[in-house]
Design a protein around this nucleic acid. Sequence first.
DNA 1: TTGACAATCGTACAGCGTACGTCCATAGTA
DNA 2: TACTATGGACGTACGCTGTACGATTGTCAA
Lengths: 224, 224
Amino acid sequence: MSAREPRQIASDAGLSKQRVVAEAVRLADREGVDGLSMRRLASALGAGAMSLYHYVASKEELLDAMIDIVFEEIELPPEETDWQSAMRRRAVSARQVLAHHPWAIGLMESRTSPGPANLRHREAVTACLRRAGFPVLMATHANWLLDSYVYGFALQEASLPFDTADELADMTENVFLPQLPPDEFPYLNESAAALVAAGYDPAEEFIFGLDLVLAALEPLRASA
Amino acid sequence: MSAREPRQIASDAGLSKQRVVAEAVRLADREGVDGLSMRRLASALGAGAMSLYHYVASKEELLDAMIDIVFEEIELPPEETDWQSAMRRRAVSARQVLAHHPWAIGLMESRTSPGPANLRHREAVTACLRRAGFPVLMATHANWLLDSYVYGFALQEASLPFDTADELADMTENVFLPQLPPDEFPYLNESAAALVAAGYDPAEEFIFGLDLVLAALEPLRASA
DNA sequence: TTGACAATCGTACAGCGTACGTCCATAGTA
DNA sequence: TACTATGGACGTACGCTGTACGATTGTCAA
């Protein structure tokens, strides 16, 4: 056997589906999903465009795999605590992950077949709810409600044109308010002013609604 | 003045921004947002691709206008009833509209500047909450919570690979269950079986979570 | 040495958004 | 009636895209 490495031209070691998909996620994080092309992805990996098709059957499959990587990053509900703490943990984790990969939210609408990490995640959440005493159909309801809140919040957060409280203040003064004549939009004006004054933190906002939902679900379980 | 119409070659009367955007929405409904290209849209209107650019500055602007048409279709909260009924009406309407235009959900993530119909809608919802007695910041919280639920539900619904209870039963038996070994996914198996047995109606599922959220918000308003 | 095989590549094609320049029916003016 | 200005529609072109196809390469079994 020769002392030579198998192959190694431009950037790194050999390709693999893992490496391809992981780099695709990085690229989408940086440039958005519209900036992700097979050529750009390939050149980020130091390869030719067609080489990618040995690891991924099509761009569609690549996108599916990217979504599943995102689900892999979301913390599963821990088993050792009460159900509310467990669901809060995983919901907070989901929001964080989706905030890091905003393209994933928009992608979900068009991808209908769940990947393995997605399935593992759903299984763990359902298990948590069932063990907490929710009847089968009630666990389904709770699942829908919680997931709707998490995804919807992430979707709204992704479409905000600012990231920090300072940026919010700037944009409110220079962009929003000029577009909102006070006589036509009195309540939005009031609301914008109050929001700037109070400061705005998406993490806090998220927790508020989440705890409200969790508390509302509590009486629906048949406590052991 | 001549008896001759101004212009009329292939399909209809003259173009206009309204007609262009409305046809774009129809096309996206039929073929998804990926199937919407300037050429296909133009040919659906009996025009050349470049003619569209007289009414829309770019495809981005077209997409923004499409989103705003969707918001125009959503019923505003009626003023004559109690706040819960009003919010339920507009939430149900929003779900229906988004179910008809699933591409809109995925689009929102990338479009950060709200159109006029969007602003009118937000103003009306905020007004309804404020008049019901919610303090300013509490109205903001309620807004976030309700919108998160509506958008998130629509997002999940759009990513379901079936539309009717029958299709669910078919797909569960022939697609899902074969992918879900009972020892690895006991709870998902149980849940799928119960769901097929109970029948599934997204409208009912939506109302369940919605009413739960509305009831949870009730004590947070300073009732007059 | 030969052959099989998987990984990688260059090339090609149709379709995309859109910049640019041209055409022509109409409106306004003389 | 003749002339010009205007603005909507269009054809062409450029640089992208996803990916089908065939050729090239490195590696290993027989």
